[in-house]
Each structure stands twice: as C-alpha cells, then as structure tokens.
Design a protein around this nucleic acid. Structure first.
Length: 409
RNA sequence: GUGGAAUUAGCUCAGUUGGUUAGAGCACUGGUUUGUGGUGCCGGGGGUCACGGGUUCGAGCCCCGUAUUCCACCCCA
C-alpha cells in the first residue's frame, strides 16, 4: 500500500468542514479589517528565503524542501508565507506606488522537521501582512485581529509580548548579550554554545537548569531599548489595556525568523501539547529593503491552522436540505426529477435503493436533512409525494408537480 | 537531528507465562408482522493482528530490520 509521506496528511470530510469553517471565519475577520486576499506560489527561488528568513535560522538552515529544477534553478517549497507576499509586493511595484497595502493569505507551508502532534512537514497557515503603516497602532491591530479570530472560533489563549528593538538598539544589545554569554565560559550547554552564534537571545529560554542559573543576571533586551522602541512598546501596551486584551511580557520571546524587529507577539494554548504556539507575528520594517524594495514599514502575523483545528468549537449543525427516496424501484425516475429541480436552490441527496419508509427516515436523519421526501406505491398511484419535516415532525402528501412546477413559474 | 513509547475491525481499545475457528463498545447493515427517524430488542458483514525477516512443533504475544504515529529535546505556526 502506498501511503502519504511522513508528516503530510490528507484533509477530508469532517476535518475539512472544520478547515472550511476556520477559513471562512478568519477570512471574514480579515476582510472586516480591510485586508485583501493574495495568493503566491508554493515554489520560490531559494534565495528569497535565505535573504528574508535568514540563513542562520533553523527553517532555512536545515528544514527546507530545496532542490534544483529542470531549468537548473535553485528552488524550494515555501517554509512560511511572509517572504512570498513581500516578494510579490515589491515585484508589482507597490512599494514605489506608496500608500497602505493590506493582504491576507492561507495555504500550505513545508518544513522538513521531525513530525509530532501539531508539527507537520506540510502544514497550513493563515496570515496577514500590512505594508506602509509605521504606527504602532497597526501592531495593535494585528493582535486585535488574532484575538477576534480566536474568539469567533471559541479558542482560549494567552498572549506573550516582547519588543525586539530596532537597528539602533538591537545590535548593541546583541553584542552586550554575547559578551555576557562568553563570560560564562564553558559552563553553558552545547545548545547554548550553538545559539550564541546563530540567535543568542534564544539562550535566555534554555531548558537546562544549570544554564538558567547562569543567566539570572543576563542583560534583558527590554531594559536596553532605545527611546523610540520603548515609547512604541509603551503605547502598544496601553492600546491593548484599553481594549481589554490581556498579555504578559515575555522578555525571552524571540521570533525564529531573522526579519522581525520591534513588536513581537505569540499566542499560545495550553490545550494542544508541546507545540503550543498557535499564532505568532510582529513588525518587520527592514525586510522590504533587504529584498531590494523601497524601505517600507510592515507588520504581520501567521496562524497555524492544524494547531487550531482541534480547538475550534464548531457551531451546532443545522438540518438543511432534502433527502429523497423511493419505496419501489418504479418511482426512482420521479425522485431524480424532483431532486434535479430542488438542487437549483437547495441541497438534495437521492437514495437509489428502494427501501422501507423507516429506512429512508433513518437515511435522512443520518445526513442531517431537514426534509425527507418519499414516493411509495400510494404516492405513485395518486401522482403525489410524501414529505416530512424532520425538525417540526410534520408531514403531508402533496401533488407530485409541487416542486417541478415551480420551475415553470 | 537526539532519546524514548506505541502500532490488533471504519473508530476507541481488550487479548492472561507463546497453545485450537482473534474479542468488546461505538459505527455500518438488516429485522423487530403490514408505510414513520434520532434513544429499545435481536441478527449480520467487516481483521494476511503496520510491513519484512528470524526463533519455535506452534507467534497477535519473543528477537532483528523498515515504515508510520505519539512523547521529550530541538524548533516553530
């Protein structure tokens, strides 16, 4: 038997109902905030991700589905969504056009990781990107959008907030931190040794107890922000306070992608296991110029759809549409004709086997139909149909032309 | 990438020191005397016990390999 590749799942039937429900809920929220849908290719030049996400990140360093295509191009399946949207933004010269551009997207992302619950090799994200707004109010808008989406889906969460500083304060802090780490000498663990070179801020979050004891007095970025970053961060907190959005400052919160600056946030759930980050995002004012665009402030977020799926509280299913069946095979033709007419406006499902009335009612019940339409011997002889409303529990026998004649009106 | 656990019916799981035709609940399907659903009662179908080797008179059970899933680390959505 051929099975799907490791970490790559099918989404079918019931799962897709959830998936679709999530998409329509999230898309509705995004549109209400003034965002427009954008779709970018799954395959991009590898250089795009190396320059945006950063070669030092795990994502680019060891998790990309990268290969050379038949035209000798170095390409890879997108490991995240922002880079492609930024590339499109620049390619279509929206950076030169100026003004504000807001996009939302959703689709498959690919990372070659060791799979576990909530961590797949092909997974789906829903994300938004906003270009051209410098104000920290836009950062707050991102957080409010995520909160709105999660609330609409009935998902509980906690919000972690941090500021990563900008080109004025981040490099200085980074240097300060690295020299602090070096002052610890050989006492740090192997992971931290590696982090020191790739993403030093990650050491602050090390699980190793010995490391934690060493880092108690480590410099915190939050105490080393420049005036601009500090004031934006304060403003952001007051906006969230004003909107009753709870948060906790997590000075160890780092985005794994190199392009973030200033605001960084992460929504986490304690109900889905160790892969608990359900959404993450922040500001990335420098990314557009890194990719040869005109410097443009930008901020965005991404939600992990699979991680959300099992948390979604689905609305009560409502009975809708028609189930049609015949009690003897001679009536099947009439049934099909009625179904054809009904389908112009409604869901209509036909059972082809001649069965007892009881069996048909069970069938109608199973597919959650509102009405059960049956033609038996009596109806066929009287040129009528029997219909029962499964919610109101009322039934009637009406002329067979009732539905089909509508068509001629 | 590192360490560990698991894999038996469509689903959730039993399966006793290796011993006849591998079980349950749910789901599916049919009946319950004549044409009335979701919840009663009775019946039925459905399993190369993940896959491939090995040990044994005999393997769902023991050993090895492979695949997948899950847990922790790592990382992130």
């Amino acid at each position: 038997m051929i099975q799907s590749l490791r970490g790559m799942n099918d989404i079918l039937a019931n799962d897709y109902e959830r998936y679709e429900y999530f998409l329509s809920t999230a898309s509705t929220v995004a549109k209400r905030y003034g965002f427009h849908y954008i779709e970018t290719p799954l395959l991009e030049e590898t250089a795009l991700f190396k320059r945006s996400v950063g070669e030092s990140s795990d994502i680019v360093g060891k998790e990309m589905y990268q290969f050379t295509d038949k035209g000798e191009n170095d390409v890879c399946l997108r490991p995240e969504g922002t880079a492609g949207v930024v590339r499109a933004f620049i390619q279509h010269k929206l950076d030169k056009k100026g003004g504000i551009h807001r996009f939302y997207y959703h689709g498959a992302m690919f990372r070659y990781e060791r799979p576990q619950k909530g961590r797949l090799r092909q997974f789906h994200q829903f994300g938004v990107e906003s270009f051209g707004v410098d104000s920290v109010y836009e950062d707050a808008l991102m957080i409010m959008m995520v909160a709105d989406i999660l609330k609409a889906l009935g998902i509980g969460y906690s919000l972690k907030l941090n500021s990563l500083g900008d080109q004025h304060c981040m490099p200085a802090y980074r240097e300060k931190l690295v020299s602090f780490i070096e002052s610890c000498g050989d006492a740090i663990c192997g992971d931290c040794e590696r982090r020191k070179l790739t993403n030093p801020i990650l050491v602050l979050d090390c699980k190793n107890e010995a490391c934690q004891n060493l880092y108690v007095n480590a410099p915190k970025l939050i105490h080393n922000l420049c005036d601009g970053c500090q004031s934006d961060f304060d403003t952001l907190k007051s906006i969230l306070d004003a909107h009753n959005i709870g948060y906790e400052i997590d000075t160890n919160l780092v985005r794994g992608l190199d392009y973030y600056s200033k605001t960084a946030f992460e929504f986490v759930s304690d109900a889905i296991g160790s892969q608990s980050a359900i959404a993450g995002g922040g500001r990335y004012d420098r990314l557009i110029e890194f990719l040869d665009g005109k410097p443009t402030p930008a901020v965005g977020f991404a939600l992990g759809i699979e991680r959300l799926m099992e948390l979604i509280v689905m609305p009560e299913p409502v009975r809708e549409g028609y189930y049609l069946g015949a009690m003897d095979s001679e009536s099947l033709g009439d049934i099909l004709k009625i179904a054809e007419t009904l389908r112009k406006e409604q869901k209509a499902v036909v059972e082809y086997e001649a069965k007892s009335l009881k069996a048909h009612l069970k069938g109608a019940d199973r597919i959650n139909a509102r009405y059960c339409v049956v033609i038996g011997e009596n109806e066929r002889l009287n040129n009528s149909i029997w219909i029962k409303d499964l919610v109101e529990k009322t039934e009637s026998t009406i002329p067979a032309t009732h539905f089909t004649s509508k068509e001629s009106l």
